[in-house]
Nucleic acid binder design. Structure first.
Lengths: 140, 140
DNA sequence: AATTAGATGCAACTAAGTTGCGTATTTTTT
DNA sequence: AAAAAATACGCAACTTAGTTGCATCTAATT
């Protein structure tokens, strides 16, 4: 993982106003380096190659980053959360693709979603999540 | 639960060609009676008012019914599966609404989804799932 | 350098969902 | 109608993602 990602992560975290800890920076840098969404376990594996980090701490770091809108999480078919960094492109309303064989998650950026769905009377819209299921190029 | 639901469930199950057991019929009848998706636990509670049914058996019944396309399952934000019967209206491509406060799931039937999404090269489309999050009428 | 609010690590816990296996029930065959 | 084959059921034990409580440590503030 290149050093500039570490610096970028550091800057993004300091902008939140909260503490810029080593764990937060390393975790965000890891997600910045990835092209697809990672599970808690995958992040843990990448981080623990060098230097330790407690499972629980990672859960809390990820939770904090979600709350701060640095990342977003995706519910997969295997009831495991996957996390992806929020860039301008990846934030908010876009679609996810889940491969039903290898369970890898990719973001489909050039996928337009109707922003304002019509809901039953009294319902309040908050966000929309579109998941496409199928086989990825490797598994097809 | 009215008797005709039991009969309807029985007929649907016999059409699969597999065994029409009491548990399968009761489970499907329970889902037929509901207007929204139920969790495994909610189904269990309804079924165990009278007569017992093992947790594991229910999991297997639900899995079997999914495979037979009698029902479909929905991934919620609380990593709990929810199950909904497939009628002509409810099958395949439609949207779900999840209330982020009470976590109840409703099907949005008058919600059109573009049937054929454009995917990256080599990817194979299987199904599309659209989830709208927000507050339901009771929680708003 | 001392303070303090918040982050971390550890151990124990919760809960959804799964697996293995012996027993019971359907369905088929005779 | 009884026996045989195939499948479903129930129980116990297990797996694993995610959570909670609490003592300790550390980044920002004074």
């Amino acid at each position: 993982m290149p050093n500039n990602l570490y610096e970028k992560a550091k800057e993004l975290i300091s902008h939140t106003g909260d503490r810029t800890t080593h764990h937060r920076i390393r975790t965000l840098a890891t997600l910045l380096a990835e092209q697809h969404a990672l599970t808690h376990r995958e992040i843990e594996e990448r981080l623990n190659v060098k230097g330790q980090l407690d499972r629980v701490t990672l859960y809390r770091v990820l939770e904090w980053m979600s709350k701060k809108n640095l990342i977003h999480k995706i519910a997969g078919d295997d009831r495991v959360w996957r996390f992806r960094v929020n860039t301008e492109l990846h934030s908010h309303q876009h679609a996810h693709f889940i491969c039903t064989r290898c369970t890898k998650v990719t973001c489909l950026n050039d996928f337009r979603i109707k922003p304002d769905p019509s809901l039953p009377l009294g319902y309040l819209f908050h966000e929309i999540e579109l998941t496409v299921k199928g086989l990825c190029a490797e598994c097809a």
